[in-house]
């Protein structure tokens, strides 16, 4: 019974975080900020829902599958965001106009098409 309540609470918080992710997608001004909104709350929300499901489902096979889902999401969300971010940056023109600081631009300007040359100072 207590477990059910905890599972329910976790599910609600997880779903609320998923809603936050959706709202962030609409409100943020450029692609990169939207990726923040799409990865972090969604991953944590899924984590909470999966923990809720772990509390409610009993057999060991399902437990392992749920853990696998969590694991896969943790590994793939940042990598996917990184790849899209990299491609979007190189495609150009996608940073919000009020971006304050851009150290990658100077590095890319030095390095040319094969990749950024990092700043020499540590």
């Amino acid at each position: 019974m207590v477990l059910d309540v905890v599972a329910g609470a976790l599910t609600l918080v997880g779903a609320a975080l998923a809603l936050v992710a959706g709202v962030g997608m609409v409100r943020f001004p450029d692609v990169f900020a939207r990726m923040h909104a799409a990865t972090k709350p969604a991953t944590l929300g899924l984590l909470l829902i999966v923990i809720g499901a772990l509390l409610r489902v009993d057999d060991p096979g399902s437990t392992v599958q749920l853990l696998l889902v969590m694991f896969v999401q943790f590994l793939t969300a940042p990598v996917g965001a990184h790849m899209v971010g990299r491609a979007a940056y190189r495609a150009g023109g996608l940073l919000a106009p009020d971006t304050v600081l851009d150290e990658l631009a100077t590095a890319l300007a030095d390095g040319g098409p094969q990749g950024p040359v990092p700043p020499q100072a540590t």
Binding site: F32, M35, H36, T39, K40, T43, F74, L75, A77, P78, V79, A81, H82, G85, R86, Y89, L104, A107, G111, Q114, G115, P116, V117, P118
Partner: peptide, 17 residues
């Protein structure tokens, strides 16, 4: 890079040579 992507306010976008 993955840890940075999942932490407050930061997202890894590129890795240099």
């Amino acid at each position: 890079a993955n840890a940075i992507s999942l932490t407050p306010g930061t997202l890894t976008v590129e890795v240099s040579d």
